[in-house]
Amino acid sequence: MKLRGALLIGLAATACNEPYSNEDLLFLKALPPELQVELPGATATTTSSIGTGVCAAPSPDFTPAKFYCDANKAASDINAVLDTVLNLVGSIAAYPPTTRDTDLRIWGPFPIENGLEAALSIERIRTSTGTLVRYTGSSEPALVYERFRFAISARKQGEGEWKGLVYGESAPTGEAGTRMGWLALDFDAQRTLDPTKTDRGAIGIAYDTRGGKTILNVYADVARYTPMFDPEAAYFYEAPGDGSGTFLFYQRANVIETTEALETMWIQVRWRPDLRGRADVVVRDGDAAPQEYWVVQCWDPNFAAVFQTTNVPTNDYPNIGQVSACGPELQ
């Protein structure tokens, strides 16, 4: 992301000698933490110790867990976005803030590329009565007495309205080492300031790491900015911490290419600590209507399909094994 390089230069130029305080750290910890969608076996996407792998090519003796492979690729894409945000935050955090107030820290403004200037602000919102927050769809609501809102904003140098490029909110969880909050990357806002940009839409990310679990919701909408309500793509990741997990992703895309109509596809992947897993795929709308097509696939710890059944009228997904091969937790 070019924005990061520009930020680094700008921050270095405007860095203040006032050292970091512990209060500054509290503000910085309100920025998004390191978040990763971790699917087991993700490091063995080409081959495993027995010659097969998550995304290994099919052979007469081996049918790969295709949908788990798809889930892994989706997770990699999400992780790339999260890494970008984290690197951006880390770059800013390397310099002390330029403005300090009791409930506000500001870095910048500092010039970036194409005649723009940018600033990071973190504001603390305190309420004596508390606020009930729930940042992910499956989080337990929490009563918090302070929240932090942050924004990386930009505008034409010295004029115009500040546009939020990356912004969000977080709240202390009361539980050491855990965070909860949300953030959004607004590519449309970036494009209004710099028409040369090609990215469109927005990505929204909500997270909650309380209780030893990691819950991560990602919403992407390229066509218009309503990511929470009607996204073009959404990802729901939940890892309770015992090695098992669920990764559900939703996408509106031209899956069935008979016409240009967009289908809606859901892929839910579940896995157990021993790497056995199951994928449930549903495609509807668009060229599928009025039908609803589905595929069920289970795999063993070597990511070899041990059960597969479908109502898709093609030979792409032949029936394999019995559903009992999925194991009792995944049948």
């Binding site: 050292p19 933490p33 984290l86 880390g90 955090a93 390397a94």
Partner: peptide, 12 residues
């Protein structure tokens, strides 16, 4: 610390 690993908090 994932968020603060590039930060140097110093004092003289």
């Amino acid at each position: 610390d994932d968020q603060l690993q590039s930060l140097k908090q110093d004092f003289f």
